[in-house]
Every structure is written in C-alpha cells, then in structure tokens.
C-alpha cells in the first residue's frame, strides 16, 4: 500500500514529541545541572557529593541492597521458577497468577504490611518477647533488614516471571537427558539450566536491581531517615535543603547504575557461554 514515510512519521511523532518535551528535555536539563557552574563545565557537584561521608554511605548502601536483593531474588527465583515449571498445567497457571498478582497491588499497601509485621507490637516482636528471647521489643523497623525484606517482597515476582518464561523455553527432554548422561543435580543446574536461562536471569536481574535502586516507598516507609537510600536522599536534598546540584548528581548515579547493571549482567551472561 502507499505507505509513505511522511504519513508514518505523522502517526509516530505526537507520542515521540510528547515524550521528548515532557520527559527527555526536562530530565536532560536536570542531569546537566551538576555539570554546570558559573565558569562553564564543571565536575565540582560530583566532587562535593562524594566528599560527604553521609552521601558515600548512602550510595554504598543502595548499591549493597540492590545487589543483595537481586542476588536473593535470583536464588529464590530459580527454586520457585523450577517448581512452577514442573507443576501440572492447571496448578501452574494458578500459582503463576498468585506470583503475578502482587505486582498489581499498590506498593504502599505492600510495604505497609511490613510495619504490621516488624513494628514494636508486630507479630515478630510479639513472638520474640513471648518466647522470652528478649525482655522488650527490639527495633526491626527502620533497619536495613526491613528495607531488604520490603524490596525483596516487592520485586521477587519480576525475577520469577522472567525465569519461568526462560525455563519454559528449555527443550523438554534436555534435563532428563543430562541426568541419564550422569550429571548430578548441581551439574544439571550449572551446565544446563543456568546457560539456557541466562537471558531470563539478565532481564530479571536488571528489573529487580533497577527496581530496588529506584524504589521510593519502601525505603521511605521501612527505612525512614535512619536508613536512607539514594531515592530518599534525593527527596531530602530537594525538599529539605533545596540542593538541586546533589539531586542532579543522584539522578545521574541512578540512571548510570541501571544501565551499568544491565551491561554487567549481559557481559556475565555472554562470558559464560
């Protein structure tokens, strides 16, 4: 049919222009803010940001929690995905649905549940005091553990979904074939399952790591100002100290880390094969 390019562009451009004006340009200006000074280009914003011990520790904590959450999600994800794939058809759909469902529910609701669980009068503390492990409730909220649990609960489904769809593409008889050839289960995992699902691991890993990095609600509710992460720090910088240069630096770090995570994971995946 006479599909000329002008017509195609006319259809695609409104969305592209909308995205450019309301998203790309403002974000680009924000990112450039840290590179600007009265004298022109400058990296002073970055130097100042990393000179602060608080900023450094928040940066490292964010990185650490991101890696921990992604790593734990991968381990649990493989176990869960393997079990799901081996379920009979109907049960498989139901369980998979139950894994996907939490994604549709407000993160505020999902995170708030942890307050009930980990709070001073929550079930965990009730149990601890009840069992006599401690005389008074211990602080579980506003700890890295709380943030870690919240983030893991929030993003684990993404890992499971990625791994399930990767495992569904493993040819049917490959695993029995490997077993017949004498491979132990450990061998089967590292020599067969892992190489065949690394695409899914890369996607899931990037989603979970990036998600953990850029989550706001969870560190805000479960970490508060005691356990700051980059997102909550950014909010503070803007709302408390009006420090837009630091905000710009954090924005750049978050974006760079997301891209880096994807690149590193891809590199690892290709190096293995």
């Amino acid at each position: 049919m006479f599909r000329n390019r002008r017509e195609g562009l006319a259809l695609a451009l409104p969305a592209a222009i909308f995205s450019t004006l309301l998203f790309l340009v403002p974000v680009a200006i924000l990112l450039s803010e840290a590179f600007r000074s009265d004298t022109g280009f400058s990296l002073q914003g970055y130097v100042d940001f990393f000179a602060s011990p608080l900023n450094r520790s928040v940066f490292l904590r964010t990185l650490k929690l991101g890696v921990l959450v992604a790593g734990s999600a991968a381990i649990i994800g493989y176990a869960a995905a393997f079990c799901i794939v081996n379920l009979p058809g109907k049960a498989r759909g139901t369980v998979f649905g139950m894994v996907v469902l939490p994604l549709m529910i407000s993160p505020v609701a999902r995170t708030y549940a942890w307050i009930v669980i980990l709070g001073r009068t929550g079930i965990v503390n009730d149990a601890i005091v009840g069992l006599g492990l401690s005389a008074s409730p211990i602080r579980l909220l506003f700890t890295e553990t709380a943030v870690f649990l919240g983030l893991l609960q929030l993003f684990l489904p993404l890992m499971i979904i990625s791994l399930v769809s990767a495992m569904e593409n493993i040819p049917r008889d490959v695993i029995p074939a490997a077993r017949v050839l004498g491979a132990s289960w450990l061998n089967v995992f590292f020599k067969v399952i892992l190489p065949l699902t690394k695409e899914g691991l890369v996607i899931g890993g990037t989603l979970v790591f990036t998600g953990a990095l850029t989550a706001y609600i969870t560190p805000a509710i479960l970490g508060g100002s005691k356990v700051l992460m980059l997102e909550t720090l950014l909010y503070q910088k803007v709302n408390v100290s009006n420090d837009f240069v630091s905000a710009s630096v954090i924005a750049m770090i978050l974006i760079a880390m997301s891209f880096a995570a994807n690149l590193v994971l891809k590199r690892i995946a290709t190096a293995r094969s």
């Binding site: 403002p26 974000v27 200006i29 706001y216 803007v238 978050l254």
Partner: peptide
C-alpha cells in the same frame, strides 16, 4: 520506563 520516576517528577516540576 527506564528513568526513575522521582527524577521524572522533579525534572517536570523544575523545568516545565
């Protein structure tokens, strides 16, 4: 989808 939402919100606020 790639850029953290908080950054999108802040950028929109400040420059639009």
């Amino acid at each position: 989808i790639i850029v953290p939402g908080i950054i999108v919100g802040l950028a929109l606020l400040r420059y639009v």
